[in-house]
Simulated scan of single mutants.
Amino acid sequence: MSFPHFSRTLPHRALRRALAATLAAFALAGQALAAFPDRPVTLIVPFAAGTTPDIVSRLLAEAIGRDLGQPVVVMNRVGASGIIGTQALIAAPADGYTIGYANVATLAINQSLYKKLPYDADRQLAPIALTGSVQNVLAVRSDLGVQDVAGLIALARKNPGKLTVASGGNGTTGHLSAEMFKSMAGLAIVHIPYKGGVEADLALLRGEVDLVFENTTSIAPHLKTGKIVPLAVTGAARDSRLPTLPTLAESGLPKYQAVAWNGYVAPAGVDPKILDVLNAAFNKALRTPAVKQQLDAQAYDVHVGPRQDLFDLAQKERPVWAEAIRHSGATLD
């Protein structure tokens, strides 16, 4: 016995059910996007509390939280040049509710500093925003007897291997900024790593080392002591907070440029529309006069732009830092 009517209509019913399920899924996805965020967002900072990454992130978290209508809670996951926090971010659900701080270290330096980096930034992360940068300052102890970059280069050439440069650790922008300087000027200066930028600055203040490359935020308060003489900044342009200081490019090294830039990322797979919401929130915060004023106090140069700016900069800078690492011989694994 056959049931022609039943056999013809069954596929149509299955098709209708499948279509209905698909439309329902699209509706739910649209509702979820329209409601984003409907609960707090976690911001992972893979560096210690009280550092420039932490200070900047907490300031921006408060501002974007107001714009999004939900708290943005900062969580510090410290260790291994940002690797621990980056891995924690990659392991989080790709729903936009966990985002992370990323910088020149996690997106550009680590790629050459570690032979076996346990994450692939291009494949496992998605850019949200490039938010800005901080320059380094080349400074010397006051009793070294030099007042400009040319004088430092001349002294180093007369005393190869006798001058010392402190940094906040192997592979930091302070260390690699010094390596770029040594390479371009053809100098032999001994690198002495400390546990952090604060310790490196104090070593210079105490006269234990001869020079340092340290970010403007950290070193600026020490310039008032008279024990440190700033010679130049490391960026492409002068710093408005230290307008009398030339760039290293102006000081005889025309190709020199090194800044500590940063931004924010999400796990790969987050809906691009959610990433656009987050990018708009960051850009709005960075345009806010009160936020800009506070960031300026941190010697932070703001960048506002599309999401891809962050990864475009990382791709551009990786070979620059790779060369500095090659020159230094530094490796962390």
Rank of each mutant, 00 (worst) to 15 (best):
D143E: 06
A266M: 04
L295V: 01
I90T: 07
R141D: 00
A61G: 05
L286Y: 03
D296E: 13
D67Q: 14
W321R: 12
N170G: 08
T244D: 13
L125P: 03
A18Y: 11
R326C: 00
L28G: 03
A129M: 04
T173E: 07
A268C: 07
W321N: 06
V270Q: 11
T173A: 12
F36N: 06
V229H: 14
G100S: 08
A166N: 05
T164V: 12
V212A: 14
P160Y: 04
G65K: 09
I274K: 15
A220S: 13
K224Q: 12
K195F: 00
Q124A: 01
T9Q: 14
S251H: 07
Y119H: 05
L33T: 14
W261E: 04
D95S: 12
L33D: 04
M180A: 12
L202R: 15
V41W: 06
T234E: 06
G168K: 06
P230I: 00
W261T: 06
G263A: 07
S251T: 04
T172L: 09
Q147H: 15
D122E: 10
D309T: 09
P11G: 06
G168M: 02
A299E: 05
R123N: 01
L223A: 05
G79R: 09
V265G: 04
M180W: 09
V259H: 10
Q135K: 13
G174A: 06
Y256T: 01
G30A: 11
G252C: 07
T51W: 00
A49P: 09
A25Q: 13
F282A: 05
Q298S: 09
G30K: 13
R77D: 07
L313N: 11
D143S: 15
G30H: 10
I83R: 15
T331Q: 15
V270K: 13
D122Q: 14
S112Y: 07
K182M: 11
A297H: 12
V149F: 10
T42N: 11
V41H: 07
W261D: 02
G82W: 02
K316L: 10
I83T: 12
D309A: 14
P11N: 07
G235W: 10
L15G: 11
A200L: 06
I189M: 03
A314N: 07
T52K: 07
K292D: 00
A49E: 09
G50H: 09
A203C: 10
F26I: 08
A34Y: 10
T22F: 15
Q293A: 13
V198F: 13
G145E: 03
G161M: 06
A80C: 04
S177D: 04
S177L: 08
H327C: 01
L163Q: 04
N159Y: 08
A154H: 09
G100N: 05
A35Y: 02
A290K: 15
A281I: 02
Q293I: 02
Y114G: 04
P93R: 05
M180Q: 13
T51C: 02
M1E: 11
A88Q: 15
T216K: 12
A20E: 08
S57F: 00
V74A: 08
T131W: 01
L152N: 08
R39T: 03
A281L: 05
N279S: 08
L43M: 12
A34I: 02
